[in-house]
Design a binder for these strands. Sequence first.
DNA 1: CGTCCACAGGAATGACGGGCGG
DNA 2: CCGCCCGTCATTCCTGTGGACG
Length: 401
Amino acid sequence: MKMEVLDEIFRRVLSSKIFTNRSSLRPDYVPDELPHRENQIKMLGSILAQALRGSRPSNVFIYGLTGTGKTAVTKYVLKRIEEKSLGFKTNFTYAYINCRQSDTPYRVLADLNESIGVRVPFTGLSRAEVYRRFLRNLDARKCVMIIVLDEIDFLVKRHGDDILYKLSRVNEDLLYSQASLIGITNDLKLTETLDPRIKSSLGEEELVFPPYNAVQLEDILRRRAKRAFRRGVLEPGVIPLCAALAAKEHGDARRALDLLRVAGEIAEREGAENVTEEHVKKARAEIERDRVVEVLRTMPLHAKLVLLSMVYLDNKGKTRTTTGELYASYVHICRELGVESLTQRRISDLVNELDMLGLLAARLVSRGRYGRTKIIELSVSKKTILEVLGKDERFSGVANL
DNA sequence: CGTCCACAGGAATGACGGGCGG
DNA sequence: CCGCCCGTCATTCCTGTGGACG
């Protein structure tokens, strides 16, 4: 019986009425064309091509908001150079490190080791030791290495710029190998917080990725959709809607592609013949829910209580609130649940984290005589939060306040 | 033009669990 | 096994500050 059920699912997936190649909509897919990014490709390519001659390319700093193609362009260019380098005598290698996933100096160093095939324990060694191992092994390989640090702001904000400094000096400790850095960030103000020496070293070359506009997003979606979907399954309004929604979110192509893919998946699950605008709207809600689930999975209990407090205030008609107010109702909820409350200092950090993760929107305001505080708003719907948190029995009884 | 609110957010510290090398 | 070093969560204490009010 179970087998039949599965067979049915397999059959449906394998003979999709909607998709022909779903993977080309996935966020980690590197397409073989990157429309509207020709300039950036050319510039990055001409900088990094130095590696093919065996000399060290300049360090590059790449700015641009999320979903503007920074990662895709970088990976694309590196891939091409790697392919090309096979025909040359020079040894070329690169490491791609996402600092959101590897957000401590230790993990970055550990990843660097991994990328040149050196296994290191994921904790336990001193940083200095891991760094030393990396140097030794990199030098032994006698190569030109490009180190990509994506979403570098996560690393810097939490742990300062020490490793950046170290890495930007790495060539001084290398005899036979050379390394250059590519730093990618979506925080345009990041350089202000960096040590000027790092700033000048990392910013030997700078590349800016402007956001896509709705027209460009539509073009990108159409090209990918041609590959991903069966002919004619997309209703005419679907792509423009995805593009418009994403354009509102500062031209985020990843969001646009996610919307389109998830809309397709929903249509498929429903057994529909076509993907409709309705599916796109459902997709938007589903993506939001997944994001909340994902964030809350990794956040401590009290982050959830902070969100709950926001919902609580919202229910009382306060869509936007201040730090003090939020803290008061957080303490109230903690008492209600018999949980010990944390200090305001800690809550302030949690609010900042939730802000960075996009569940809250917090902005600093000065109200003169009436002090300086943060105006905090939910940036996901109450419904979603309660849906996600409602599953946790610890919160039962509070959720309906 | 100075004051002073209501916090922001940095620094130092500690408890804790995990994992290393020896 | 120990001594050491991590990263994470949290506290305590602290200095800094934009701008409306007086």
